Computed example of a mutant assay.
Amino acid sequence: MRYDKHILWACVAALVTGWVLTNDDGHCSGTVTRHSCNWTCMHLTLQWPGSFCIDINNKTSCKIPQTVQYWTIHGLWPIRTGHCCDCWPIYHSHLEEIEPELTKLWPSFIKGKHFFYFWKEEWIKHGTCAGCVEAMGSPLLYFQAAVKLRKLFDIDNILEKSGIKTSCEVSYKHDDIRGVLTPLLGQNYDLQCVTDSEGREAWIQLKIHLFRNQTLGCPKQEQEQKFDRLPWSNSTGHPCPKNSTIFYVPINYENPHEPCN
């Protein structure tokens, strides 16, 4: 679809003030509608590669690169209602400055899907709403913010130092994991799991609650969000159970959809 250049830049400019020109299907037009700029909180969502392929729809489409050994970024997501702007384009050249870091910390695990197209989807779905905030007011700034936060919350180092290591034999109580993460994150996070073919509860995601100024915290009513349907999965992820143990499964590069079988 081609956009009139004047409408295109009007959309981008209007985004900063909270107003966007859209038509009924969310694309640019001459009609002014309210954009989702009045959000308060966001989630930095980290994902564990070892669990990623467990519940994926097409087992053959999943691949974990050998270079991936740590928690990666799934997204930086404003908690909002309403539509983000389709009119704020992102191009590969926008991210060239930080592409080496993004490739390491924000990879795609779907075969044949270039990393940039994963980043592009995240920008269109979430980044254009985050762009209402000056510190994330461009594709480059948004992705730089996510990388900075990922480095700040060094989950791999915290877990390793606390003795929580990947295993198919050893599992952990919910409170054991929270006891390790709470000194770093307070109560501002959620643990998300998926169930593998043997009934193991496998830890897959960590959602860290942040204010729009990128500091920890979020009003309670904002935190209580339903877990998202995992777009690549057969089912929704779910809160990690408190009444059974949780597996922090290893990354299995050869058989990623069944890391413990």
Rank of each mutant, 00 (worst) to 15 (best):
M1W: 13
M1C: 12
D4G: 08
W9A: 06
L15M: 11
L15Q: 15
V16F: 14
T17E: 12
G18L: 05
G18C: 07
T22F: 02
C28K: 03
C28H: 01
G30H: 10
T31H: 14
R34S: 09
R34F: 01
R34Q: 15
C37K: 03
N38C: 06
N38Y: 10
W39M: 05
W39Q: 02
T40W: 01
C41D: 08
L46H: 09
G50Q: 10
S51M: 05
S51P: 09
I56K: 12
N57A: 10
N57D: 09
N58M: 04
K59P: 15
K63H: 13
Q66Y: 13
V68Q: 10
W71I: 00
W71N: 01
H74N: 13
W77H: 03
P78V: 01
I79Q: 10
G82T: 08
G82F: 10
G82Y: 10
H83G: 04
C84P: 09
D86Q: 15
L95Y: 08
L95S: 06
E97D: 14
E99A: 13
L102F: 05
T103L: 11
T103S: 12
L105P: 00
S108C: 09
F109P: 00
K111V: 10
G112Y: 08
H114I: 11
F118N: 09
E122K: 13
C129R: 01
V133K: 11
P139T: 08
P139Q: 10
L140W: 13
Y142A: 06
A145W: 02
A146V: 00
L149E: 11
L152D: 07
L152Q: 15
I155T: 09
D156P: 04
I158F: 03
L159C: 04
G163E: 09
I164K: 05
C168L: 05
E169N: 14
E169Y: 10
S171A: 14
K173L: 11
D176E: 15
D176K: 08
D176M: 06
R178G: 00
L181A: 04
L181S: 03
T182R: 15
P183A: 11
P183Y: 07
L184W: 03
L184C: 05
D190V: 01
D190E: 09
L191I: 00
V194Q: 03
S197M: 11
S197T: 14
S197L: 12
S197K: 13
E201Q: 15
L206F: 08
I208V: 09
I208G: 01
I208F: 03
F211T: 05
L216H: 01
C218W: 03
P219N: 03
F227E: 00
D228W: 02
D228N: 12
R229K: 14
P231H: 14
W232Y: 14
N234S: 14
S235P: 00
S235W: 07
T236W: 09
G237V: 10
H238E: 14
P241R: 11
P241F: 06
S244G: 00
T245C: 03
T245E: 14
I246Y: 01
Y248K: 05
E254Q: 15
N255L: 11
P256E: 06
P256G: 03
H257R: 07
P259S: 02
